[in-house]
Design a protein around this nucleic acid. Structure first.
Lengths: 157, 157
DNA sequence: GAGGGTCTACTCGGATACGGCCTGTCCGAGTATTTCAGG
DNA sequence: CCTGAAATACTCGGACAGGCCGTATCCGAGTAGACCCTC
């Protein structure tokens, strides 16, 4: 069970975008240089965030990405599932109904207990990530962070 | 973030072994036929459980696998991490210290807030899986299950 | 000086190769059982 | 009938290929801005 490395990228990029003044944008190239990441591949991940409705993109000069909603309404779960997908890690393939020990269908009306326990754990994980928003992160940053971020980000403009 | 398909296999196999009488064993071939799984590959996963100290293996005729400890002391977490590894899914590569926006080391004494939040979610997940033991599963099965399982399992002996 | 058209340069968006891990398979080492011969 | 050893068949254990997903890269379509020419 491994999350893509791009998960860290989008979390940091979203935190960075949340520090811009409302309406301002940052291009994929700027963000890539800000974190020393492969630019085109980072752009691919940011596109996924646009498809998920978390980011909004504008083309042309001075264009780029910005948050599609207030930072308080963007959760970690939305960011993670945008790049990794929302499929649960444990997939029940109903092996209890296969082979010599196959259970009869009438004993399988309810979902498998094992699958249910695994799904519960996944639900706890999702809830924990859904409880944290970008606004929570910003409130824990030093007050001088946004200005520093903005200046360093636009240094290569 | 995806768990191996063998996760489901070992959960079901461990539940099956927990239904045997104490000291009895079941071979990889028996378990494979019981669930219609690829035998050699299943054996590979069961070996991982042996290395993790969850199962004990005895060779020779009438040999096979059995639980290394009472069912009440075997948690889902031990089973899952035996086949998938204990590495956390989110790996912080400290990209905050790279590129144009690199933070100075004195601002990075504490672990990254993003990594901490992700680690918390992973901890919640692990705790939930650690709270469920094989004994809990057995208590939710119908009382007739163990005898049925034993007879079906040894049918191909 | 003001306005309109064109031109440019920069942006996102999707389609295309490479590498690593999971899946699946095989064969070899070791051992408890079984068998059989001898006493 | 009992004892002992040897043969045997069954088990686990680790080493070997194939396929799929994540990683990395490229080029094309579209657009907002800037420039310049004209009135």
């Amino acid at each position: 069970m491994k999350l893509p490395a791009s998960t860290e990228w989008v979390l940091h990029c979203a935190t960075t975008l949340a520090q811009l003044e409302p309406g301002a944008t940052a291009s994929a190239k700027q963000l890539a240089e800000y974190f020393d990441l492969p630019g085109p591949y980072l752009a691919k991940q940011l596109q996924a965030l646009v498809r998920a409705g978390v980011l909004a993109a504008t083309t042309g000069p001075r264009g780029g990405f910005r948050l599609a909603r207030p930072a308080a309404e963007i959760t970690f779960l939305q960011l993670v599932e945008a790049v990794d997908g929302a499929a649960p890690p444990y997939e029940c393939r109903e092996i209890r109904q296969q082979g010599r020990g196959a259970l009869p269908p009438e004993d399988c009306r309810d979902t498998c207990i094992l699958a249910r326990k695994m799904a519960e754990a996944h639900d706890v994980w999702r809830r924990h990530l859904a409880a944290t928003t970008l606004a929570d992160i910003l409130s824990e940053l030093p007050p001088t962070a946004p200005t520093r971020t903005r200046s360093r980000l636009t240094a290569g403009r």
